[in-house]
């Protein structure tokens, strides 16, 4: 493997915000394609960061930082990328449920999913079930990610699941929940498909669905 590709991995692993641009530029100059850089450099780099997060070596701020490092690299790659390769793992509609306006966790998940090849439609906060279904229908999304922090708003998760049933989408979309007030028990109670405790959990779950779908 070329040293420059390993340097991309290293830059992400070491959260080298200031160095990544030059490193990716060098890869392009050496004739590597954007797809190769993403596949061989960025994705494995993010996987290392994710593993370090799970092992307790890295923290949430480091995940954000890794996302920012990738963000620095992406404009350089996007200009030269073949259309259709971005967001290849599928579309995820993300929202903080109705009544809740907390978005930090949702934004982290969005950033991690985007950096890992998902097309993310972020509807923002306090989003009613109907709007989530509209977005899923119009985009053809197969995945929905719901965030809830407030205990008082957990019923909004059920409303989304019910809306998916009533619009005939329930069998076509996977609904994953996360956030401070959520749990595996709540996931089962509300009829969602999966619960992710962390952003890396969410990535693993959506990756699993994307690979199996």
């Amino acid at each position: 493997m070329k040293e420059s590709i390993l340097a991309v991995r290293r830059a992400i692993d070491e959260l080298d915000l200031d160095g990544i641009g030059a490193i990716v530029g060098r890869c392009l100059e050496e004739g590597l394609s954007p797809e190769e850089i993403i596949q061989e450099g960025i994705s494995p780099g993010l996987a290392i960061v994710g593993q370090k997060f799970e092992e307790g070596e890295y923290f949430l701020a480091d995940l954000i930082m890794a996302g920012e490092v990738v963000k620095e690299a992406m404009p350089l790659l996007k200009d030269r990328m073949n259309p259709g390769n971005d967001g290849g793992k599928g579309t995820v509609v993300l929202a903080t449920v109705a009544g809740d306006i907390h978005e930090i966790g949702k934004n982290i998940v969005g950033m991690i999913l985007s950096a890992n090849g998902f097309e993310v439609i972020d509807l923002g906060v306090d989003v009613p079930a109907g709007k989530i279904m509209e977005a899923a229908q119009s985009s053809g999304a197969r995945f929905i990610g719901l965030s809830a922090l407030l205990t008082t708003m957990v019923d909004s998760i059920r409303e989304v699941v019910d809306a998916a049933r009533s619009t005939g989408l329930r069998d076509k979309v996977r609904i994953v929940i996360g956030g401070a007030c959520t749990s595996q028990e709540l996931c089962t109670e509300m009829g969602a498909d999966a619960y992710g405790e962390t952003a890396i959990d969410a990535l693993r779950i959506f990756n699993g669905y994307a690979a199996g779908a």
């Binding site: 890295y58 923290f59 949430l60 701020a61 480091d62």
Partner: peptide, 8 residues
């Protein structure tokens, strides 16, 4: 956060 410190 729920799962640990925000930063190192």
């Amino acid at each position: 956060f729920k799962s640990g410190p925000i930063m190192n």
